[in-house]
């Protein structure tokens, strides 16, 4: 089981802040494709992957990063701190 977290407008578009899923996806990008195939809300939320950032087990990663034995994957828009 992988815990998925969503933040900011991505959270609003998928309609949930977190969920637990089973996945065979090998990379973060594969997981995004899997999520997009679910329904229109996910397809819309992830439609522009250049606007998506990801963290695996709370570390920022590139979208081609392997999922390995990830316990938590988070998706969010580019950060706007400071």
């Amino acid at each position: 089981m992988v815990n998925l977290r969503y933040f900011a407008w991505l959270r609003e578009r998928v309609g949930t802040a977190h969920e637990e899923i089973e996945t065979e996806a090998e990379t973060v990008a594969d997981l995004i494709e899997e999520l997009k195939a679910r329904d229109e809300a996910y397809a819309f939320a992830f439609s522009d992957v250049t606007a998506i950032r990801a963290a695996v087990d709370q570390e920022l990663v590139d979208l081609d990063a392997p999922l390995g034995g990830a316990r938590e994957v988070a998706f969010f828009p580019p950060m706007t701190g400071g």
């Binding site: 900011a8 963290a55 920022l60 969010f76 828009p77 950060m79 706007t80 701190g81 400071g82």
Partner: peptide, 8 residues
């Protein structure tokens, strides 16, 4: 902080 800290 602007683009690598998880704030929105």
């Amino acid at each position: 902080l602007k683009s690598r800290a998880p704030f929105w």
